[in-house]
Amino acid sequence: MNSMRAVVFAYHNVGVRCLKVLLARGLEVALVVTHKDNPAEKIWFDSVAALCAEQDIPFVTPDDPASPDLIAKVRAAEPDFIFSFYYRHMLPAGLLALAKHGAYNMHGSLLPRYRGRVPINWAVLHGETETGATLHEMTAKPDAGAIAAQVAVPILPDDTAHEVFGKVTVAAEQALWTVLPAMLAGHTPKLPNDLSKGSYFGGRKPEDGRIDWLQPAQTVYNLHRAVAPPYPGAWTSLGTRTFIIAKARLSRQQDLNLPHGLGVKDDCIYGMCGDGKAIRIDELLENDKPVSPSELQHALECAQRHPDTTITQE
């Protein structure tokens, strides 16, 4: 179809799907750079390395994308394009310059909004109703280059970040599929990426999932949605015990008359929030095991009988 060559830095579902788009559009993928799976991380996503093995595509898993050995490999591949699809490291300017027709990254937001790390989780946390995928030119500054393509998706009121990630993966595939013919013909769009109209966000840690029950119910619910499994989950503590909310929804129940934090009423688990509203918790976990309403009630009663054990909810 054409003789264009690409070097692809890729990981995760977005990496797999976008790599498949390049192959379907007829690009020669000369080299793929991916990550070794971290044994400490829950791997719930597809493997770029497995796809490369299946398709007989050369791939490497260097720890440092700025290593001289990798840069020499990329230079030897003589790429027309360099693509980054959910690769977790910034690529050095010297490496980007090796692409004859430019280097492009697929970002999981509608740039210039939500630049930086874990953009889908941040968008859900902030109660956004829309996000998407943006293919943009890579520059020395992250997520700052001209926009080549963009596709939006809705964030519905009860969507978790994991569900939105599935939509954004499809949006990334659509954006790349649609713009590739123009890119291969030498007419890559360059739309403005006005950084003054967006914000940059950093990474998130499991500790950031701690629930403050004095916040409004919608805020607590958004936190749950943003970090619900397979992410680490929103959590609360009762003494030395830690509970993670796996499934929840905003409660329509009125006059629950429960204190802030976890509570049980009519054999249902609730989380009472600072505005007097609650989230109904349909699945509560402790050490990855479901906690029943009766088990939680027992824990709460023990806490009331033994206040000297400093059992608190945070």
Rank of each mutant, 00 (worst) to 15 (best):
P62R: 06
R17K: 14
G127V: 02
S67M: 04
H101V: 00
K100E: 15
H35A: 02
P92Y: 03
N222F: 03
Q215C: 02
L184V: 04
W177S: 15
R210A: 13
L258P: 08
S3Q: 15
N257G: 08
G261V: 08
K190A: 15
E301V: 01
T160K: 04
V220D: 04
V16H: 11
I57V: 14
T160N: 03
Q215L: 15
P232K: 09
F201G: 00
M90Q: 13
A103V: 10
G166L: 08
G203N: 13
I57K: 09
H101I: 00
R249G: 09
T188D: 02
R117E: 08
V14T: 13
L176C: 02
Q174G: 00
V170I: 14
A144R: 05
G239Q: 01
I211V: 14
G263K: 11
R113C: 05
K42T: 12
L156D: 12
F81E: 07
K73A: 15
V168G: 02
S199K: 12
A24T: 06
T139S: 09
Y200D: 03
R117F: 11
R241C: 00
K141S: 08
E283M: 13
L296H: 08
P181R: 03
Q174H: 07
M4C: 11
R115W: 00
F85K: 01
M106W: 03
V16G: 04
D143Q: 10
S237N: 13
K42D: 11
E295Q: 14
F9Q: 08
H136M: 14
Y11N: 15
T312A: 09
A97D: 14
E286F: 00
A40V: 07
R280V: 06
T219S: 12
N2D: 12
V164H: 06
G186N: 04
S294N: 09
L296K: 05
K265F: 05
A248T: 07
A10K: 11
V164K: 06
L19F: 03
N13H: 12
D80I: 02
K141G: 00
E173I: 02
D143S: 06
L184W: 01
L91G: 01
M272Y: 03
R117I: 11
A97R: 13
D37A: 12
A171N: 04
A72H: 11
A72W: 04
Q174L: 09
P229Q: 07
K265A: 07
R17V: 15
V32R: 12
P79D: 11
R204E: 06
A53L: 14
C273W: 08
G233K: 10
H107S: 01
S292D: 06
Y11L: 07
L285A: 05
L250I: 12
H35P: 00
D212V: 01
P142D: 09
G198A: 07
M138L: 13
L96D: 01
V227G: 05
A217P: 04
